[in-house]
Amino acid sequence: MLGLKGCLTILTGYAIAVCALFSSRGRNPSLTDWEKLKDQKILNIDSFGLTGHHLLEFFQDNLAFLGFSEGSYHHKHVSLYYDVFKEYILRRASSKKCLPVESAIAKLNKDVNPMPVHSHNDYWRKLPLFEGLAYGARSTEADVWNIDEKILAVGHNEAYLDPVELTLDKLYTDPLLEILDEVNCQDSDSDRKNGVFFNSPETSLFFYIDFKSDDNELTYKLLMQQYLKSLIDSGYLTYYDMKKNEIVWRPVTIVLTGNYPTSLEILDNGNDDGYFESYQRFAFLDAPLLSLEPKYSKLSVVTTVSFNQLMKHCGSDSWKVSLRGHMDSNEVTCAKSLIDDAHALKLKTRIWGAPTWPSNLVKTISHQIVHDLGSDLLNLDDLYMASSLI
């Protein structure tokens, strides 16, 4: 983290720049002057070498100064913090320079290793998508509702949707396309694609799309045709190769959850050769860990169970584990056998609903789930805590 001396140096530099504007013009700086100063400040942040949660902390600590021209932002929809941060992260992407080492991904997680964490209800975070990537979370999630049969709005409750600004493309698919284009610009035609983790470009980001609307067929159609098509055309989505009968991993892996369609007639758009007649299936079902079948090795890449369901299956429950402070050897053996069965089908595993308090219990259970059970993903809301636990 920046020390006191470093912060004072930065703020002193900003103060000098502001004073220079006042003295050179002999009047209050205009909006244009403020914009120029803002642009210079944001560009100078690159020289500090901040990444990961250190970059997030810097923006939060200096937001009052970084965002003084807030009239140009749409912060009523997400936040001023989000708008200023997004502008900084995507600035180089818009410059059309091909320099992956200075990309948005380099800014977000250059010194961060991917961690087996699912960013639960990611859209509730101060920085949807970007915060999870900054901490190295291997999985993210967006709840979607189809609005007026043409828009997929993101939100937890239908009463509080914003179909203009808080949409799947504006919060997730468009930024993903930009930052992936940026790190694949040197050889865009290559079959090998770099992903969203600087230290591990081969690691795929699991992107859970939680279907909330009743008409899941329409939601799926909108998802495929309007929101995922550009990522598909660019070769960024993991797919099931229907000819070779194998999974081909790419930078982003789409997992359908919630009220999703399960019929192959819908998933493949009525075609024997896939939705876009390419012999590829680009969306995978969230398989149930406690009732796995061999078919899921073709329909899924990940399987999910709640911690309480898992413990009940093993003759216990989450309350017993919480009171004891850890899973005992019988619980570990039983749960691990289920996860091993999933891995035998080449499925990753995700566990949600583990204890979230107190911190000592969270640390112990999280460590057991990841290291003793071997689960690939764990729901954790506090990403800062997660980065220190796993």
Rank of each mutant, 00 (worst) to 15 (best):
V301N: 00
F276D: 11
T9P: 00
T238L: 04
Y239I: 01
G132D: 06
Q309H: 00
N199F: 03
S139A: 15
D61Y: 10
D46R: 15
K86E: 07
A20W: 12
V183E: 01
S103T: 07
L267Y: 03
L267I: 12
Y240L: 02
Y172M: 06
L323C: 10
F65A: 15
Y227Q: 04
L377P: 03
I254G: 03
G155E: 03
L223C: 06
N184H: 01
F282G: 00
F59C: 08
L171C: 05
K41Q: 15
F276R: 08
L310T: 01
K5A: 13
N216D: 14
Y296S: 00
L176R: 01
D148S: 15
D143F: 01
D328K: 08
L237E: 03
L289Y: 02
L231V: 07
G235W: 01
G67V: 01
P201C: 08
T257H: 05
I209E: 02
S139P: 11
T333V: 08
F207D: 04
G325Y: 05
T167W: 02
F65D: 14
G6C: 14
V255P: 04
V101R: 15
Y208D: 05
E331C: 04
A335L: 04
E331M: 06
G26A: 08
G155C: 05
P116N: 07
S188L: 12
G3F: 13
S69R: 07
W357A: 13
A137M: 08
M311Y: 03
A153S: 11
E331R: 03
P355I: 03
Y135T: 05
D83N: 13
I45L: 04
E178S: 13
E149K: 13
P128F: 04
L264N: 12
A386S: 11
Y260S: 13
G258N: 05
K212I: 02
N44F: 09
Q60V: 12
S278A: 15
C19R: 13
N216G: 06
I339W: 02
T51C: 13
L361D: 07
R324A: 10
C334D: 00
F211S: 04
F48M: 14
L166P: 07
K36G: 12
V370A: 10
I209R: 04
Y172K: 01
K298G: 02
T303Q: 02
Q225E: 15
N269L: 06
L285W: 02
K221N: 11
D33G: 10
L223I: 09
D83W: 07
G3E: 14
T333P: 01
E35W: 05
N259D: 09
V78Q: 12
D376C: 04
T333E: 14
A106S: 13
L290V: 05
L389F: 12
T51Y: 09
I232W: 07
E265Q: 08
L290N: 12
Q226K: 13
E178T: 14
N216W: 05
L347T: 03
P261M: 02
P201L: 04
K348C: 03
L285A: 00
Y14L: 12
H118Q: 13
G374L: 10
D328E: 14
G258K: 00
H120D: 11
P288L: 01
H75V: 04
L176I: 11
V164R: 08
L323S: 15
F284C: 09
H326K: 14
L66R: 00
N245L: 11
D61N: 14
P175W: 00
L166W: 09
Y88L: 04
